[in-house]
Computed example of a mutant assay.
Amino acid sequence: MTANAVVSPLPNQDGRQQSEEPLATMVRLVRDSWTVAEPHADLVAKHFYATLFGIAPATREMFPVNMEVQRSRLLRALVHIVQMVDRPDDLLPFLRQLGRDHRKFGVIPSHFEAVGMALLAAIKQYAKPAWTDEVERAWAEAYTIMARAMLEASTADDGPAWWNGTVVERHRLTRDLAVVRVRPDQPVPYQPGQYLSIEVPQRPRMWRYLTPATAPREDGLLEFHIRAVQTGWVSRAIVTHGEVGDVWRIGPPMGRLAVNRESGRDVLMIAGGTGIAPMRAIVEHLAQWGENPKVQLFFGGRVRADLYDLEILQNTATTNPWLKVVPVLESDSTLPAVEKGTLADVVTRYGAWQDHDVLVSGSPAMVRSTVSRMLVAGTALDRITYDPFTVD
């Protein structure tokens, strides 16, 4: 299988849309078979990597020695792509960003073929008895679309595969939370709300996604908010062992969180814990204009310490009347004007937000529960934006 083996069901160059029926069939077959395989997701991932390293041994050097976290990252990416396979306007930008991001690994075209073979072999193993020749063709076609978009973006990008950045400040706010400021050797061309892949010297080859908490600055300085999660090899290393002077490698920007000031719609932002970082960057960017859409920002956590950035946001709101900040706590209501409950509880208590663009950021569990509750409450899926890679 190669990246050009199957014709994409996306629009032709002259703008004419090909038949939607083959695309609908492909989507149904891919999703139905993944539903069968998904309960065995950990085994699917182990099978995938074992097969990949068997047919393309050189790819093993691209990955860390400990593969436990890397396997979960594959599954998050796979599930995200499966869910979006019939939404090319959303999926293709994500795949192109992913293709550019993979340049840092030294990926070459033959690697895409090996990955496709390993992926189909792994899903086939655990999608039985749903796996048929027709299902295999559907997965091959879906993967070809993915691989072609990634490969085209990778080969077309003439910018750096990564930037080096030096840690110039490090503030440990709590035992498990740190603010780290990094100065890249040249400005990183990210947009407010986007995230970056990071490799730190304490954990070589363990790239993780972190979101700058500030809008791009003339001096290029990046600020990151990092919480050491229990299973987070990289986050714990940064918070516990990181030092001023550490040199990080920073991959190309990714992500879709953004505010369209010309849409005519107001904005709902929902952030849990360090998921506030992209929202703060966007708010800081918007603050340069006198007029903006109305922005209502729900900032939530379990206890008061989780709302570590609340004072800065509230100060911003006092000088920007288009911004309203609502603190939300699950188990601590000592703050004035605080809403009590989970973010999903509180946000849906206000209604369906039909006329708003909705941005969601936080842990995968928080994003899943909030988006699910909003859909049930009547929020349209195409109004909700969130990124799949947000935690260690």
Rank of each mutant, 00 (worst) to 15 (best):
Q125H: 13
V135G: 05
P88N: 07
I108K: 15
A156T: 03
P184N: 05
V85F: 05
D158A: 10
W131H: 04
R148G: 02
H80S: 14
K128P: 00
A178C: 13
G159F: 01
E152D: 15
R175Q: 10
K104N: 08
H80D: 13
T144A: 10
I81D: 03
F105W: 05
L177T: 11
Y143I: 15
R87V: 10
D90C: 02
M84D: 08
R103M: 04
D176W: 02
R170Y: 15
E169C: 02
H171P: 01
T155I: 14
V135M: 02
P129L: 11
I123H: 04
P129D: 11
W163F: 06
H102V: 07
P93G: 07
P129A: 07
L151T: 11
P129W: 01
R181T: 11
L91I: 08
G116N: 04
V107E: 01
L177S: 08
E169P: 01
A130R: 12
D90A: 13
K104T: 06
G116R: 03
I108L: 10
V167M: 04
E136V: 02
A153V: 09
A161G: 05
H111L: 04
G106D: 06
V179I: 15
E152F: 00
A149I: 00
D89P: 01
A153R: 07
